[in-house]
Design a protein around this nucleic acid. Structure first.
Ligand code: MN
Ligand code: MN
Ligand code: ZN
Ligand code: ZN
Lengths: 150, 150
DNA sequence: CAATATATGCGATAGAGTTGCAATAAGCAG
DNA sequence: CTGCTTATTGCAACTCTATCGCATATATTG
């Protein structure tokens, strides 16, 4: 590993610790690494995937607790439920009530973020209701599975 | 119970059996009653609720199998996941790719169908993708919980 | 009504997620 | 840097949803 990349890793590590503390979370090694995984991959992650990607050893329960703490603090949010797995992601590509949609293939289970797909909602929720977030999941067939069905 | 309502129950029962057979499903007593519950309540139901509402005795596993069979046949569909519970409903108020949205309160977990809330999506999924259904879940606070937060 | 294929009951099992408790480590004052 | 305080972690047990294998029951068909 070069000096350069080592420096950028250090900087990144400090940035992540800062982000944790800004959100009222103690910057532990486990939390820093889990949060780093979200930044490095840029993809939605479930507890299972996180466990497999971790260099540092972390207990299952700790990862679940970290994901819950992050969600409560707003550092991540739950993107969608894939089968029985809860899948989380950074809320960076979401603004206010319009979160980006996700796609899920009903045949193979493949999922993807839909960055260019826009969803406009209109209507009233009723007196007293407050909308904070809008989750959209498009279900259908992915390219591989449409081929197979021909 | 009056003659009238008994007649209408009978008619309803025959209609439900017919609907099951039309969709390639054997019209068993268990299936008929579960499907009747969806029609009678008109509400989204989870396995737990169904178990509690059943007059007829049905095993847990059977209810799960019935819900899976109904979903595969398109008689019902999964509306959303409430915590760990899968919640199903009749697809009657959905047309093509535009299913009606649902609301979920992040504080108390209360959920509701949003009949008057319209969602228009635009954009392309990419070559080979086929969109079949669009699930929308609005998360926020219900009237009871907005009161409490004041 | 009998034959056949499917659905159900029952018990065991899988798997995601949570919890209690003792040990550990982060944050902070000195 | 050091020790104190408190939040976090590891571990194991546990909860709960959902699934599965297999023997039995039941719907459908002729
Ligand atoms: Mn996403
Ligand atoms: Mn609904
Ligand atoms: Zn696919
Ligand atoms: Zn509420």
């Amino acid at each position: 590993m070069s000096h350069q990349s080592q420096k950028s890793c250090m900087a990144s590590a400090r940035r992540i610790s800062g982000l944790l503390r800004e959100n009222g979370l103690r910057a532990t090694k486990g939390r820093a690494e889990v949060l780093a995984l979200f930044f490095e991959t840029g993809k939605p992650l479930a507890q299972r995937q996180i466990m497999e990607m971790l260099r540092l050893k972390l207990d299952r329960a700790s990862v679940y607790r970290i994901l819950n703490a992050f969600t409560a603090a707003g550092v991540i949010h739950m993107a969608y439920v894939d089968g029985r797995h809860r899948v989380y992601e950074l809320p960076d590509r979401c603004s206010g009530r319009s979160c980006h949609p996700h796609f899920s293939c009903r045949s193979c289970g493949m999922t993807a973020c839909l960055e260019d797909f826009k969803v406009h909602s209109q209507g009233t929720l009723g007196k007293g209701f407050v909308a904070e977030r809008q989750k959209v999941l498009i279900e259908g067939l992915c390219p591989d599975c449409t081929e197979g069905k021909k």
